[in-house]
Design a protein around this nucleic acid. Structure first.
Lengths: 212, 212
DNA sequence: GTCTATAAAGTGATAGAC
DNA sequence: GTCTATCACTTTATAGAC
């Protein structure tokens, strides 16, 4: 008898399928990734893939789910270290850079979601939202600590939304310049200015300039 | 004889095909949009589509090309009106909002580019870049006027890049909240802060805080 | 330029032996 | 759990009449 532990071989196959599916789908998108492509790339026959995941949609859901769980466990603490705002902001931005660089699957998968409009199953859409909610919650919590916004949840929300949109925009930019990095510096300046702006201005009030 | 002018009927068909292809591809993405879908939606048989565009890729290129030309002619003047910075910035942001709302095809098409990695033809990639370059050039020029940056092209470049990434990020956010708007206010604050930051700091120098 | 008809290959998915 | 073999369907693309 082999020394192989209780782990079934099936579990390993499952992971292997998920690995290649994650890779292919994040590179080509959901629609452009076929079962036969996955089968050829991971060595297992198509029927095994169906045995594990039931359908192409099932693979997509499983891929998203695993990506989200991986992200969750890898996400740095919300309690960003640092004595003053500048230091904590730096910690946050560094953490964000790490997340952005080490979990490109997530951002790319979120973009390979051309399927959302019609072909997406309810499960896939739900999983997609869960992934994004995870990121939002982390950014919101961390930014609340950075700028000490415990009493101003709307401001944390706004800063987090802004941060995530910048990150998404950078992910898009990568299609054109694959080397595009997160551009920490403008984001730092922007976040500080936004936080200061919202601190000096009563919540809800928005000073407009010019136009009626 | 009919009053119909020299315009061939073929030209109209061509436009009709492009219309529906633009709609379908921006909603479902390139890969998920089939010739038969386009054929069914626009009424013309598949062979007519091939007669006009030669291949599926050819349709995509033509769609992108037309979208870019439409954008170019619709793009407001780079010479943003306004006496002071605040007014000109407001003009720019309003123009940006209009572009963003009235040309969603473009932003969505840029995102339906899952095809870039492998299946994309050189022509399609080139056209995609041209579309983006058009937007960047406009934003760069306009922001240069807004903040009077004639002598600091790197700053205009940075501001434009930041603006476009924010806009792209918002386009992504629309998958989750279809009602998501461009969030002019944070962008305004961020751009002013960035411009001020770059004016006060010598070009190239970047003050870092904290970490070594 | 537009149509019908069809070729050739690929797709998602399943049956059943092992 | 994994394999071979296959079904029913859709895909891109073309041929040729009109």
């Amino acid at each position: 008898m082999t020394e192989a532990p209780a782990h079934d071989r099936g579990t390993r196959s499952r992971e292997a399928i998920l690995d290649t599916a994650t890779d292919l789908m994040s590179r080509h998108g959901y629609a452009a990734t076929s079962i036969s492509m996955i089968s050829a790339a991971c060595g297992l026959p198509a029927s095994s893939i169906y045995w594990h995941f039931g359908s192409k949609d099932g693979i997509y859901v499983a891929v998203l789910q695993r990506a989200r769980i991986t992200l969750e466990t890898a996400l740095p603490s919300i309690d960003v270290p640092g004595a003053d705002v500048a230091q904590r902001l730096d910690s946050f931005l560094e953490a964000l850079t790490v997340v952005f660089q080490r979990h490109p699957h997530g951002t790319k998968l979120l973009l390979g979601l051309s399927m959302l409009q019609q072909s997406a199953s309810a499960e896939a859409v739900a999983e997609l939202h869960r992934y994004r909610d995870t990121l939002m919650a982390w950014a919101r919590g961390a930014l609340s600590r950075v700028f000490d916004l415990g009493d101003r949840p709307e401001v944390s929300e706004e800063l987090a939304r802004f941060t995530l949109r910048t990150a998404s925009g950078t992910a898009v930019a990568r299609w054109f310049e694959p080397a595009a990095s997160l551009d920490i510096e403008p984001l730092r300046v922007a976040l500080r200015a936004l936080a200061a702006h919202r601190s000096g201005v009563p919540a809800g009030k928005t000073p407009r300039v010019g136009h009626p």
